[in-house]
Design a protein around this nucleic acid. Structure first.
Lengths: 116, 116
DNA sequence: CTAACGTATCAGTGGATAATGATATGATGA
DNA sequence: TCATCATATCATTATCCACTGATACGTTAG
């Protein structure tokens, strides 16, 4: 009676939410640009602002998001705050995504459900 | 003069958009549920509707999105349409995400930038 | 041909969220 | 303490997108 209907998926609904939240966290060009900037190493907010061309409040907001998500970590250095990737797997996940993009060609471009 | 400022990132802006689009495609619980249903094998739309508890038009919309993105493929069988994962790497990417989630604890939960 | 079924599309709606400007907090140096 | 700099927060706005119900399209059976 609970072979493969919605029951099992309802139980796994939290896991789906969590996964979705992670992917959504990575699903923003600004945050990806920030993470890219951090792949090269530790950076403070101003440097990230310079690297990405984003506004400072915007960067801070995204960094807070990434920090809460556990994707980056931070340490204070005087009045600077230096951020870095929290885990090697973050960079790995992004690289795997690039591989998948290479495999699917530019198929993603064709998706018209949401804006390019 | 073009050491590490916005220039390089601007050139890579398209790549960022593409990656972001892929992650956003995966950043929805409904689409993840659909992909989960397809991990076990090929399914038609009705079966997916049953597995996920989503509405049929909703499922069709998401499937179109996933199809356009090249994440799933389809084949007609009479009046049924059977969908399957387009690439092993899709499942791999999801599994890598789960690993990262395990590594970061449930940190993602803490991110308050967007709704749980 | 017509009815029934499976799937896809369309328009409308509500909710979520990224970006911005103004401002607050915190730290350093004179 | 006061001025300055680095970072964080807040409120606003405009946009985007997931879901729903109605409906169209395509296929098969009688």
């Amino acid at each position: 009676m609970m072979t493969n209907d919605a029951q099992g998926d309802l139980l796994a609904a939290d896991a789906l939410e969590l996964r979705a939240k992670l992917f959504r966290g990575l699903g923003d060009p600004s945050r990806l640009a920030i993470l890219d900037a951090l792949v090269s190493g530790e950076r403070n907010v101003q440097e990230i602002v310079g690297d990405t061309g984003l506004g400072q409040p915007n960067v801070s907001n995204h960094l807070r998001c990434l920090l809460d998500c556990g994707l980056v970590s931070r340490r204070s250095e005087g009045r600077f705050v230096r951020y870095r990737l929290a885990d090697r797997q973050v960079a790995n996940l992004i690289r795997d995504a690039d591989r998948l993009l290479a495999a699917t060609g530019a198929g993603i471009d064709n998706c018209e459900r949401y804006t390019e």
